[in-house]
Design a binder for these strands. Structure first.
Lengths: 211, 211
DNA sequence: CTATTTATGTACCGAATGGTAAATAAATAA
DNA sequence: TTATTTATTTACCATTCGGTACATAAATAG
């Protein structure tokens, strides 16, 4: 009833009431990220997550809700964290530099051995059982969002004059995300960084031809 | 003990001994293909398969072994059947035509609504739980095989003279399969045929630039 | 101190998973 | 006919799945 009032009250003043949480939530999310990233949503079992987080199951549920909610939180952490190179790429001054940075950044990222290979948004639930439909849609939507962001950036490039007015920005964006997704598959299939770099060199070679 | 001798005996002569199989094995595999293709290896449950095949579970196990063996048989059927357009593409007379046919064939195939979208070899087990490691490796190996086939075809093109000796055939092959895999992801994410065609038009536009 | 609140650990839940034992049905062989 | 062989059906198995009830531990409030 009056929980809202209580929450208002202890902004920073009073210490929380009951037994304190005994683990670092952010660290826990990072560990969960590693599991979901390498195994996908369905491939990651709760028991595996329990082991990786070092927390008992009821504490996970108390802190994050359920498996689906945990995945969503991990997903946001992934996008704003490890996958943050994408935003940086979009801030490059010209369309050509955006494309270059986006693809080279992806290659660097996908083949970085300090974390699971490939893109979590691609591998998370490409195909899945009935129970994961919602997560699948969510990931599809995230991929679309990225495509939209790139298209918007290219629309801006037309305004700024570093992309011809005749350029089809939607097609260019889809071209880049298609490569991005293909690179992710290649990376998780064992392709080396050098191989992936060669691929995007071919793909970028014709940027002037194409736009 | 002497089963081998028996098998030798009834090549075509005597009718099989016991109760006859009551279902069309090939039709069953085709139904199983549909399930695995749309749900992936782990996403497809045995109960779903039982329903789709219209056969009771023990009969499936008697006929095909287990879930893994069934998937393998389905996979071979997929590669030699629906995915047969790839072999045809490789038989085109020039490297450029091979590339064109390979990509346009993939787009046609991935967006054909008479069967599940995308490529089963890509979506089958991109990420998975511990139990599907073997299938995952199998699919990775199949993707590599395709890449190898394309490379070999391009090596031949160098000999035949329709590809310059300076061309890096391995890189070209990886470029094409990366696009192929990206197109598969896009198709299962709802991209239209027209959109995919626009993507490969961009990708092919620079073939002369690149090879 | 006691009362209250919140988090933890143990032990468990029903449902779904892949897989099978055992009885029965349908064919051929003799 | 009877014996043998193979396939089908029903009913079940152990394990794992995601998720939780419940008792207890650790903090603050009074």
């Amino acid at each position: 009833m009056n929980t809202e009032i209580k929450i208002e009250k202890d902004k920073k003043t009073s210490k929380p009431r009951g037994r304190p949480v005994a683990f670092d939530q952010d660290k826990a999310l990072e560990n969960a990220l590693h599991v979901f990233w390498s195994r996908g949503y369905e491939g990651a079992s709760m028991s595996e997550l329990v082991e990786a987080l070092g927390i008992n199951k009821p504490s996970i549920y108390a802190a994050f809700g359920n498996k689906e909610a945990l995945f969503q939180k991990v997903l946001e952490k992934y996008i704003s964290g490890p996958a943050g190179f994408i935003s940086k790429a979009l801030n490059e001054p010209t369309a050509k530099l955006v494309a270059e940075k986006f693809l080279t950044g992806a290659v660097e990222f996908f083949s970085d051995e300090s974390h699971p290979s490939g893109c979590m948004v691609v591998q998370g639930a490409l195909s899945c059982g009935q129970g994961a439909d919602f997560i699948q849609s969510e990931l599809i939507s995230r991929r679309r969002q990225l495509e939209e962001h790139i298209k918007n950036r290219f629309d801006l490039a037309i305004v700024k004059g570093d992309l011809p007015k005749s350029a089809n920005t939607a097609n260019l964006a889809k071209y880049l995300t298609t490569l991005h997704q293909g690179l992710s598959v290649q990376a998780t299939s064992g392709a080396s960084k050098a191989e992936l770099l060669a691929v995007i060199e071919l793909a970028l070679h014709n940027w002037s031809t194409v736009s």
